[in-house]
Design a protein around this nucleic acid. Structure first.
Length: 876
RNA sequence: GGGAGUUUAGCUCAGCUGGGAGAGCGUCUGCCUUACAAGCAGGAUGUCACAGGUUCGAGCCCUGUAACUCCCACCA
């Protein structure tokens, strides 16, 4: 310990030094230690491409709070760490750089060269986000962080793929999938965002074969006309019954297409006739299957028109749309154009409008996987916090579609399927297959890679060494908690749960703690395109990591969104500053070198008061943390430290500390130290740096607060009677301050105080406090009202009547008015209480405790009223 | 269309299983009181969205209404 602590609180100075110390001592290291219980947290792998954003900071903060708490409770707390994932974002980022700096595309480089670039990029920037997380105080052992593209994880991915394939849960199939022409890849449904877009509704004539007649169809995507293979009407639609089975002539193309009847068509919408393009629309695809229609794909992967488009070949889809509409108009086939706003799917990464395209892709069959995943949440194997998110989860799981897992990217886990071009054989294998088992020809691996979330879904066990039976896997799995935002329930959480169940037989975590999104001060989602993102690092530089963490943990309930205001961080920083100064005060007055609690017999009422309050705080904070009520816990700590400890206890104890002759000064020092250092422990998970700094300066045992023991509730430290006594004195002090402020009496003007009370001893013990805290020049405590000036200011509290002889300042009329006002208020209260107590229903049905409380209140009010009435009489 | 959420002080939000409405910020008044002006002391401000219901008692439970938000599915 050392009494030298900087005069001013400078977070940057403290935080950098302390983190370095922690790193040096390797406190973050966790290993399977069978003498302890495991506590494992799964973290979302931060993305290698991105800057740390507020969402990460929130994830990180909440996780770190839990980890630090559990570590202090003696758990072997492991953070399943990792960074980067085999995500499309990484590839796009590198492609972007490539295009900007060298004017090249990935195709110019070729697969191998391109992947080298990505690895370079990863090696150069992969650690960047980790460095940023460290500034936040992350107690993760980043040295053991895994990377999803590492060998171990790749092995797990292959294992899973092959297992699922062999069980028939992975299949290849033609499907309409969402295609991003910009990323040139398939997207899963979850990766498509829908946005309202203004568009047009083109009404087009389709001539009936061998007739001058025609039908009118309406479409929002006229370019898909090129791939039409039918027109559908509702079988119930009287307007079109005779048309069913007839042939139409497809405009511009000349192909003959049938009119089919299908329930899918809504009679009321549009014209009641729908063009059917099985290759470019999911619903049409289904219709096509029912009527055995041909699927004609008219677009290339980059959404340009292909050879089936005739004269439109090579045009971009939007160019083609224009050209087709113009040609239709020229031929008089365009009836009219309506304004029409409709929902358009967009790629969630790049925002490009997705194109539904028929394509051969790999799918995971979801139904058999979803069943146990639903069961695991139903039977409580995994619990969502707050609980309502389980409904969101169920809703999705119960209506889940097969999951398209192939991505036409190069960066990622390559699909372990091998094809023989000679005989058409396909082999799925964990190990590379070069020779066709059938014909002996060379085999080539599938070009596609797996969806990011396919490997991310394995995170909880692949990072622990699965499929090997490692000691770590055995000890740490299933994990304890997953902390994440509700926005990735479907992408990630759900998929981790069914993957864990399928491959390990256990749901990967016990609790899923959901938090909300961090929004800007106007409530908007933070995003790059809006430019409203707040950089956590800037905030840390300005206010400190402790202040940021405190802000993120505070003032919002789990799962609710949070608006981010600098003012809130400022308030947190002020709190840190308050702690700093209270500690500085404590240290300045310390000449003890050990941290222990004095014998109860030496403790004064105020000592017992703060100890008792502290003791209850331990219990409550522990309870709250166990229930993941982090915000509640931190609010209690804030109130205790600021109000009880700083504003009251320190002030109460000052005279004892300053008077070197007073032997009880030493007791006060012990109490200050004890309460402060233990409170620092309780606060440590939230504000790790400042608490470490202060704890180190105070008398302590052990090397670091982060490996110290979590405080325990001690029934022997519960001093209810002393708490109540102290409260009586504090109430009196507050009442006096209040009166003086109302009367504009400056603090410099001291006055004699006469306290008339039944609790003479209590107030006599506290007499000294009135001089310091209530501007008393002298304090007299007596049982009756003898010798009191009739003009004295009169203050009534529950346990005392206090008189201040300030006659020259007293405006008699005003004083009387105030007393009458007070009388009215008390009478109203008494009436309310009596109303309750005379209500038989209340007395007989309410819990005895509540009734007794009301009764006591009533008596206390009555006593006060009596005193007031007396005062009024004597003044009059 | 299906699901979830929100509505409490000027602003941002707490309010745990029903038992006299809270915090931070802002605001007003008075204080540089030897830890802290990033502070101290004191004050003001609420038909807890609305309407019913259950209950001795409702911000909290039930039903309905309104406004807003998010997620999922979507009509060509």
């Amino acid at each position: 310990m050392s009494n030298n602590i900087d005069k001013t609180y400078d977070p940057a100075k403290v935080e950098d030094r302390i983190y370095a110390e922690w790193m040096e001592k390797k406190y973050f290291h966790a290993e399977a230690d069978c003498s302890k219980k495991p506590f494992t947290i799964v973290i979302p792998p931060p993305n290698v491409t991105g800057q740390l954003h507020m969402g990460h900071a929130l994830d990180e903060t909440l996780q770190d709070i839990l980890i630090r708490y559990k570590r202090m409770q003696g758990y072997s707390a492991l953070w399943v760490p990792g960074y980067d994932h085999a995500g499309i974002a990484t590839q796009i980022k590198v492609e972007e750089v490539l295009r900007k700096e060298e004017g090249l595309t990935r195709y110019d480089l070729g697969r191998e060269k391109f992947l080298e670039r990505v690895w370079d990029w990863k090696n150069k920037y992969g650690g960047r986000i980790v460095e940023q997380l460290k500034k936040l105080g992350s107690s993760c052992d980043w040295d053991r962080a895994r990377f999803t593209m590492d060998d171990g994880c790749s092995k797990a991915v292959k294992e899973v793929f092959v297992n699922l394939y062999n069980k028939g849960l992975i299949y290849q199939g033609s499907r309409i999938i969402n295609w991003c022409p910009h990323c040139i890849t398939a997207l899963s449904d979850a990766e498509v965002e829908h946005a309202e877009q203004a568009g047009h509704f083109w009404h087009i004539k389709y001539p009936i074969k061998d007739s001058d007649n025609y039908v009118i169809i309406a479409t929002t995507r006229p370019e898909t006309l090129l791939g039409d293979t039918a027109v559908a009407v509702n079988p119930e639609d009287a307007r079109y019954t005779d048309l069913i089975g007839k042939m139409l002539v497809l405009p511009l193309v000349g192909r003959e297409i049938p009119v089919v009847a299908d329930e899918y068509v809504d009679k009321e919408f549009g014209t009641g006739c729908v063009k059917i393009t099985p290759a470019h629309d999911p619903n049409d695809f289904e219709v096509g299957k029912r009527h055995n229609l041909e699927s004609i794909r008219v677009m290339n992967d980059d959404a340009t028109i292909n050879a089936h488009g005739g004269k439109y070949e090579g045009m971009d889809r939007y160019e083609a749309r224009k050209a087709i509409v113009a040609d239709l108009e020229e031929q008089g086939l365009l009836v009219r154009v309506e304004e029409h706003s409709h929902n358009v799917g967009q790629c969630y990464r790049c925002g490009t409008t997705v194109e539904p395209i028929i394509s051969k892709q790999w799918f995971v069959k979801m139904e058999p996987l979803a069943k146990p995943a639903i069961e695991a949440v139903k039977n409580g194997e995994t619990e969502f916090v707050p609980e309502r998110f389980s409904k969101t989860y169920m809703n999705w799981m119960e209506n889940v579609f097969d999951w398209c897992i192939s991505r036409q990217l190069w960066w990622g886990h390559r699909i372990p399927a091998y094809y023989c071009d000679e005989c058409g054989e396909m082999v799925v294998s964990k190990t590379e297959v070069e020779v066709c088992p059938k014909c002996g020809a060379h085999m080539r691996q599938d070009d596609d890679v797996l969806d990011t979330w396919f490997s991310s879904a394995l995170w909880p066990f692949s990072t622990l060494g699965w499929p090997e039976k490692t000691e770590e896997l055995d000890y740490f799995y299933p994990t304890s908690v997953l902390v994440t935002g509700y926005d990735i329930i479907f992408f990630w959480v759900a998929r981790m749960i069914f993957s864990g169940l399928e491959h390990t037989g256990k749901s990967p975590f016990k609790h899923v703690l959901m938090h909300g999104l961090v929004r800007d001060s106007q409530g908007r989602k933070m995003s790059k395109s809006l430019g409203n993102g707040i950089d956590p690092i800037e905030i840390i530089d300005k206010y400190g990591a402790d202040a940021l963490r405190f802000t993120l943990a505070t003032g919002n309930a789990p799962g609710n969104d949070m608006r981010f205001y600098n003012e809130r961080v400022e308030a947190s920083r002020n709190f840190a500053n308050k702690i700093w100064n209270a500690s500085r005060f404590t240290l300045m007055n310390l000449d003890i070198t050990e941290n222990k609690l004095p014998a109860v017999s030496e403790l004064r009422t105020e000592d017992k008061w703060i100890i008792s309050k502290y003791n209850r705080l331990v219990k409550e904070v522990t309870d709250n943390l166990d229930k993941f009520e982090l915000g509640v816990a931190v609010a209690k700590l804030y109130d205790f430290i600021w109000d009880d400890f700083c504003d009251w206890y320190i002030e109460l104890v000052k005279p004892r500390l300053f008077d070197k002759e007073d032997a009880s000064g030493k007791t006060a020092q012990y109490v200050l130290t004890y309460v402060l250092s233990n409170t620092m422990k309780l606060l440590h998970p939230f504000m790790p740096f400042i608490t470490e700094e202060i704890w180190q300066h105070l008398p302590h045992e052990g090397e670091s607060i982060m490996i110290s023991d979590w405080p325990a509730y001690d029934a022997a430290l519960d001093f209810a009677a002393d708490e109540a006594d102290m409260q009586s004195v504090m109430d009196a002090i507050s009442a006096i301050r209040n009166r003086r402020a109302e009367m504009n009496v400056p603090p410099s003007k001291k006055a004699k105080i006469i306290i008339v009370t039944d609790k003479k001893e209590v107030f006599a013990n506290g007499a000294a406090f009135f001089e310091r805290l209530a501007s008393a020049s002298e304090t007299v405590v007596q049982a009756d009202k003898s010798g009191i000036d009739a003009n004295a200011v009169d203050i009534v509290t529950a346990d005392a009547q206090i008189f201040l002889p300030l006659d020259e300042l007293v405006d008699k009329e005003k004083e009387l008015a105030r007393l009458r006002e007070e009388k009215k208020r008390l009478e109203a209260e008494i009436k309310r209480v009596e109303g309750k107590l005379s209500n038989e229903g209340f007395v007989s049905k309410a819990p005895a405790k509540v009734v007794e409380e009301e009764r006591q209140k009533g008596e206390s009010y009555k006593a006060m009223l009596e005193k007031i009435e007396e005062s009024i009489r004597s003044m009059e």
